[in-house]
Write a protein that binds this DNA or RNA. Structure first.
Lengths: 335, 335
DNA sequence: TCCCTCCAATTTATCGATACACCATCGAGA
DNA sequence: TCTCGATGGTGTATCGATAAATTGGAGGGA
């Protein structure tokens, strides 16, 4: 492996001069700069990042912890984060938490060790109890809906407003028996994404003067396409009548549409379906999926901006909470 | 930051002993081991990986370079790679090449610098011309269909056999005018995924005694859902008659199905469609998508096994090429 | 002429963990 | 009794880059 001193020797200068050239610091004469660059080319030198990291304490890596890249939403998120981070000169190490709290705590705990300058955590389970952990850790931005006191920066989705708008939209399209398709979580679990979206659904019903009917809660185990398809099938078999479904995510909505197809029900003629996320596939499914579209680019840009501010300026600062704007995109599934 | 010598001081031993305990090396007495572990707990020590990396030359990181996590296939691949790598004790840094050769070369070139012990490159564009680059680089496994002489380990898909089987399947289902939906690539470009799959399509037609009709090549720009939908729409508008479509990937197949729906054609009644990859969504779309299902777990496991062998044993070894087994999964879209 | 400032470039010490060589002790075999 | 091998542990140099302190001139003002 060719090191800086090899380059220095060849160029006839000190390693510091090489370092200065490599890092684009001024105060190197044109003459020497050229000689150094030639020597770099000639030797094929590439910098050893661990050495720099050891010395400077920064890695140029951002950690991204998501439940799983397998979920379309998180895959698209990952793609955006990696692209945006690359623009800012960061590389991204991805970690899958499995949507378990252990995985999430792990991600935070490992992030020291993990050699990253900051962490973007798409948290599902982690809560205020673990806030202490979060505070001791490296710069952190949370994506998701939990509250963490004032300590942590936080880029949230418009969960309540989103599903409320979705529900109202179904009502406007003529639905009167609107089901809620989601996995269930303990109701006392404050500020969980699922709870907030359920709350929005309820508000939407209330806005329309409709009463909530417990029968209309689709029994979904995990928020996957498979479980959603099974859940809605169960509901149909049980003879529950409904003409609209608000799904907690697009993936669940796809599962619901699949389950309805299995049951011989047509979307949107028999049942209208609306999702949340606006993943790519939503515009290409048959029927295409109406959905709540948070501004993903805004979220990622914001998260990375907050994070890189914290990375550059370590002085303590209260956590900020920002909520993404959203649009309701009406497509065939609610026509 | 608490270092090893802090722990050593507290435990009243040398840093080497701490190091030995941390790394689970034997030849530390029970007594000292306990004292060290207590000291670790008490101080909250976590190891500084950069220091270890600098000293040992290994990072515990594997690079994964894919065109984009935005494509369902690569998202699922990424998920598997990260999970499997975690089992083997590696973390994964993901890089998006944008399916451009520059991005791919970048990925290889940066991989030195990038502090990873090995690289899994899902190559689309890179070819034999760049083989020199590949040889100088860190341990590398290619996922994809290009040939790279004998130099590089290579886990390939059953591209030719796969689309051949897909085509034959359509024939068996009664299709006689079978279209090929794919982006076009220069025909002289050897061992490109797309070329191989096209070849399989042709072989399938030949097997069935059907003649290839240039009219039946769907004009797709990029292998995305949007372009596929546009391409098939164009073909319908042009009045081309067809009763089956073999798509180069599942994403393209979804786009095709969407485009057919726009044109008022039913799948499978009017046109049968088959894809390639068996992404998750294939079983949940309406209609569900018949497809060629390579054994993804096998591919990932194999790739990581090859890679970790090369990482552990640097002695030069000729490149191996392994081809994944596959199944044809018949679903509603070709019923 | 002398002193002082500035600038380019170099020297030196250091980041934290580990490879390696070395030392001490103890028990067994000759 | 002496030697040898195993066991358990320590001291020191080192990985490669960089921060901080230092040197040696080149100007510039008095």
């Amino acid at each position: 492996m060719v090191t800086m001193s090899d380059v220095a020797r060849l160029a006839g200068v000190s390693t510091m001069t090489v370092s200065n050239v490599i890092n684009g610091r001024r105060s190197v004469s044109q003459d020497l700069r050229r000689r150094v660059l030639d020597a770099v080319r000639e030797t094929g030198y590439t910098m050893n990042r661990s050495a720099r990291t050891l010395r400077t304490g920064t890695t140029g890596v951002i950690g991204l912890a998501v439940p799983s890249l397998d979920h379309m939403y998180f895959a698209e998120l990952g793609s955006r984060v990696i692209a945006k981070a690359a623009e800012l000169g960061y590389r991204v190490a991805v970690q899958q938490t499995g949507a378990h709290i252990e995985g999430e705590i792990d991600a935070v705990a490992m992030s020291h060790t993990l050699d990253c300058d900051g962490l973007i955590l798409s948290a599902i389970e982690i809560g205020p109890e673990e806030a202490a952990l979060l505070n001791r850790s490296i710069p952190l931005v949370l994506l998701g809906e939990r509250l963490y006191g004032e300590a942590v920066d936080h880029v949230a989705m418009p969960n309540v407003e989103g599903t409320r708008a979705a529900t109202v939209h179904l009502v406007e399209q003529g639905c009167r028996r609107i089901a809620w398709a989601s996995n269930a979580v303990p109701e006392d679990d404050q500020h969980n994404v699922v709870i907030d979206r359920l709350l929005g659904y309820r508000r939407g019903l209330a806005d329309a003067g409709l009463r909530e009917d417990p029968e209309l809660l689709v029994p979904v185990d995990q928020p996957t396409m498979a479980d959603a398809a099974a859940g809605i099938a169960q509901m149909v078999r049980d003879g529950v009548e409904f003409d609209g479904v608000v799904a907690v995510t697009d993936a669940v909505a796809f599962g619901v549409m699949r389950g309805l197809a299995n049951a011989g029900l047509r979307v949107p003629q028999d049942v209208r379906v609306i999702g949340f996320d606006d993943v790519q596939h939503a515009q290409f499914s048959v029927p295409s999926l109406s959905t709540i579209a948070p501004d993903h680019d805004w979220m990622v840009t914001t998260a990375l901006t907050l994070l890189s501010e914290r990375i550059k300026d370590h002085s303590p600062r209260p956590g900020r909470e920002l909520v993404a704007p959203f649009r309701l995109v009406a497509r065939e599934s609610t026509a």
